[in-house]
Write a protein that binds this DNA or RNA. Structure first.
Lengths: 236, 236
DNA sequence: CTCATCTTGAACCGAACAGTTCAAGATGAG
DNA sequence: CTCATCTTGAACTGTTCGGTTCAAGATGAG
């Protein structure tokens, strides 16, 4: 195994990312990374850098991969803001439901470890959280929410999304995680005005169905591919 | 410093708890604990047990201390469910605002580290999360919410409460954390029925004020003591 | 004062840690 | 085949880890 050939850096990065994702920075040793990637310690240092550098690359990879999915989900916000936000949460819920991926969220875990991480890594994680807020804020404004309301909901929805990372690690079932999201979506539906979006009607009699959102949300919930990590190309 | 006298175990436990709270289990060494408590390594082992035992005691201490506060906040749920839940969140927001305490939440941090913690510790942390759900569920039922709605909101509100731990570590301001909570409270107010509780009216014109909740919530928001950790007796 | 009790600092152990280096060997391009 | 290139296993360094032990000394009850 040498000569001109090279191992697949993308695959190795994915394996390292999943290792950090599951165990966090402090509880991941270079030996763990060696085992997870199947690479020798020497190869890791020569090809992926030291532990801190590798973690940064994994965090960047994670942020880009799921950031793109969140962006795609919210891209229809101008037309169908509620469906867009529902699709946004489906990105997270699908990821958690994927048995090939750890529970939780690499960004959330990194942010929680902020006080003991290198400043650069901590800043990058905070930046990722801020980007989620910006994404949601932009989408909600495109969905014609009042500025003040868009700001409040963007903050709220970003927080609810992060809460899924914590709750999924606490053993909360997929149905319960869905309930967490549905309450937030219901509140958003009311803020958007009950007339142009369907609500899940947690708090009262369901309004006459407008049948313009249901199919879309169903499609976004069940029609997405399994999203296996290894099936993606290297992004960095 | 010997003979019959003894150091204050309660104070030492508080210091250890804060150290674990800030840095997490993996990133806290026994030397860190020694430095934080001012106790010698020998004294820690003889009086507080090994690292795992000590962490369990700290987790128990944390869960009891704030569990009592959450219970007290929700105790008025039958009369004023919205004010009770607002007071519930104020427990968390006040804790985060306290400059003498770390951001985040020991339970949330422990739950996030579940895959790499001893099974007993992980189970205890999960149990604490479940207890929060039960607290809220009971309170909401006492507040005469429909069973199904109470269940959904209990799950949602428990998640939102955990989200504050993540967001506070991401540098989110106190005002933004308040916004996260306010959106959830607004949704709850609507579920409870706009007639007997005041809403913060994020989504439309404010209804005629009923002036039965405002003073209570203001008092619970600003009238609580600084809640310094060191001022409590040992609970274990 | 006497002496049992407790705290303290320091040392020690085996293990795991991050990080680095290097010779040996496998590989494939020419 | 030849040989430059790359991977590999292994070893090594210095540090920190959790955990334990112990003698010295401080203390206060009797």
């Amino acid at each position: 195994m040498a000569g001109r050939k090279q191992f697949d850096i993308a695959t190795a990065l994915d394996a390292a990312m999943i290792q950090f994702w599951r165990s966090g920075y402090a509880d991941t040793s270079v030996d763990d990374l060696s085992r997870a990637t199947g690479l020798n310690r020497s190869s890791i240092y020569s090809s992926l850098g030291d532990k801190d550098t590798l973690f940064t690359r994994c965090l960047e990879r994670y942020a880009t991969r799921y950031g793109d999915k969140y962006d795609a989900a919210l891209s229809r916000a101008a037309d169908r803001p509620l469906a867009a936000v529902r699709a946004f949460f489906d990105v997270t819920l699908d990821r958690i439901a994927d048995p090939g991926l750890p529970d939780g969220c690499l960004v959330a875990q990194t942010v929680m470890a902020t006080p003991v991480l290198s400043p650069g890594v901590a800043a990058r994680a905070r930046e990722a959280i801020g980007l989620q807020h910006t994404r949601l804020r932009t989408a909600l404004e495109a969905g014609r929410l009042r500025d003040e309301t868009a700001e409040s909901f963007a903050t709220h929805l970003a927080a609810v999304n992060q809460s899924l990372a914590v709750m999924s690690r606490a053993g909360t079932s997929a149905d319960q995680l869905r309930a967490v999201v549905d309450v937030a979506l219901d509140a958003l539906a009311r803020a958007l005005g009950a007339s142009d979006e369907d609500a899940t009607s947690l708090t009262g009699p369901r309004p006459v169905p407008e049948h313009d959102e249901g199919p879309v949300s169903d499609a976004s919930r069940t029609g997405s591919p399994p999203a296996t990590v290894a099936s993606r190309d290297d992004r960095i």
